[in-house]
Design a protein around this nucleic acid. Structure first.
Lengths: 108, 108
DNA sequence: ATTTTGTGAAACCAAATGGTTTCGTATATT
DNA sequence: AATATACGAAACCATTTGGTTTCACAAAAT
């Protein structure tokens, strides 16, 4: 099963996990406390996120702290770039139109 | 089945469709030509994209032209914003560190 | 030394997913 | 009028998904 970051963020629970571990490392148990699913289900989500290279982990005794590899999120940002170009371009065009209308109005 | 834009972009074929119709409206048949799947399969993807309110359609005779509702893509951008804040902040911190090191070097 | 705790992995399951083939129907073409 | 084309929808199917329960094992706590 080859998974990518877009599949990783498709699931709402995984998106929530990513937000939680974006600023602080957390253990699977700590994460499971935040949801209405078993610790094992969270573990499976972690496994998927790990396969997508979205996580860094640090083992402390018998606990494992997972934190977001935030740079990986930039891949989504990069994919969005092509659409951002379009909507920014359209905004500029709208801006131009409004400017034109305004100046035409001033001249009348 | 409640679907959202993150599920919509999880599938690689759907992502390709979104790119294709970002700048020009296309019919299901025209889209199907671009992939190795049946027109009906494309139709199902279109249905999903439509449910996520990602499409505008215009009927011309017996053809239906689909185009991307680009503003909807901003939802992904907005979700990314929280992570962007973090990585920009970390970049600033790195920048500060480098500046500090440089000035310390000049003073020695 | 025994028990408790934190974890990953496996076996299992119902539901969702992404594809196909088949069909009905509206619109163009001949 | 008959045929061809464009489309959506339904029935069907294998695979994937997201969850569960159960298990094995290492590390703490008692």
């Amino acid at each position: 099963m080859k998974r990518d970051i877009f599949q990783a963020i498709a699931d709402p629970t995984r998106r929530a996990i990513l937000v939680l571990i974006a600023t602080q490392a957390l253990t699977p148990n700590a994460l499971a406390d935040q949801f209405d699913i078993t610790r094992q289900a969270v573990s499976k989500h972690i496994k998927i996120l790990n396969e997508c290279e979205l996580l860094e982990q640090e083992k402390v005794g018998r606990e494992i702290y997972y934190e977001l590899k935030i740079d990986k999120m930039k891949e989504v940002d990069q994919w969005l770039e092509q659409f951002r170009k379009i909507w920014e371009n359209r905004f500029d065009q709208l801006d131009d139109l409004l400017t034109t209308l305004k100046s035409e109005n001033n001249e009348s």
